Amino acid sequence: MSVEINRDIDKFQESVVLGLTAKQLIASVLSILIGGVIVLLSCKKVGLTISAYIAIPVVAPIALSGFYSYNGMSFMQMMKKRIHFMFKVKPLVYRSTENVSELKEIALQMEAEKKKAEISTEGKSNKYESDKKDSFEKTKKKMIRVLIFSTAVVIAAIGIACGCKFL
């Protein structure tokens, strides 16, 4: 005799009817009953289509409360959290502890360091630029050689394929 056990025991759901859990079954029955009552009561006055449109916003939260879950929360729990965060949570405001004079000093120090770096790299930059140009020219020549070689290989492959076709 063997007993099958789900690997994830947290997600195990015991079905009551037609593969639905008790919560899903109750939500389904309630949504069908409430939707049917709304449609039957309003059908004669506004028509079938509009009465269905009236019933959908009422029935949808009931059905979602039985079937929908997000991060282990039911639909109602999630909506309560969303409403709480939308209206009750105050926005966070940053207030700087530095004053203007300290920020000006920091800016002056950064400018001084930048000028020192520019002075020390002036001689090096000319050499760096010429090395960059040489490297670019070498890469350009290499790419041209590769392009010519690959074109020759493709033409040769086409010639071989055509030659084999006529044999």
Rank of each mutant, 00 (worst) to 15 (best):
F85Q: 03
T139V: 13
L108K: 05
L40S: 14
I62F: 00
V154T: 10
A117V: 04
R7M: 11
E14L: 15
I144D: 12
F136S: 12
V16G: 03
M143R: 13
P57F: 02
F67H: 12
A55L: 06
G19A: 01
E102K: 14
V59C: 09
P91S: 02
V59G: 04
G47R: 01
S42W: 08
Q109C: 00
S74R: 03
V89N: 08
I32R: 07
V17T: 09
T49L: 15
K80D: 00
A60T: 14
T151C: 15
E122W: 00
A60M: 09
I5L: 14
Y128H: 02
K132Y: 12
G72C: 07
Y53V: 05
G159M: 15
L40T: 13
L64S: 00
K141T: 12
V59W: 00
A52D: 00
S120Q: 11
V58W: 00
E105F: 07
T21G: 10
V146F: 11
V3D: 05
T151H: 07
G72D: 11
G72I: 01
E102N: 07
F85V: 13
T21V: 03
I62A: 00
K104W: 01
I56Q: 03
S125Q: 13
F67K: 04
I106G: 03
K141N: 15
L167M: 01
C43A: 14
S65Q: 06
S31V: 09
C162H: 15
G19M: 09
T97A: 10
N126Q: 11
K114V: 08
L33V: 10
V37N: 02
Y128P: 01
H84K: 03
R7T: 15
K23M: 13
V153Y: 01
N99D: 11
G35N: 06
R145F: 05
T97W: 04
S42Y: 05
A27R: 04
K141A: 10
G123Y: 08
L48T: 11
C162Q: 04
L25T: 13
I106V: 04
K45H: 14
K104I: 14
V146C: 06
L92R: 06
L41W: 10
A112C: 00
G72M: 13
K104R: 09
I26T: 01
L20R: 05
F136A: 15
G72R: 01
R95L: 02
M76Y: 15
I160G: 11
A161R: 03
I160K: 01
Q24C: 10
P91M: 06
E102I: 03
K142D: 11
G66P: 07
E113M: 04
V93I: 11
I26Q: 03
I148S: 02
Y94T: 05
Y53F: 15
S65H: 07
G47S: 00
L48M: 15
Y94H: 11
E102V: 05
A156V: 14
S135L: 12
K142A: 14
V3R: 09
E137V: 14
L103E: 13
E105Q: 10
L167Y: 12
I9D: 05
L92F: 07
L167Q: 08
S150A: 09
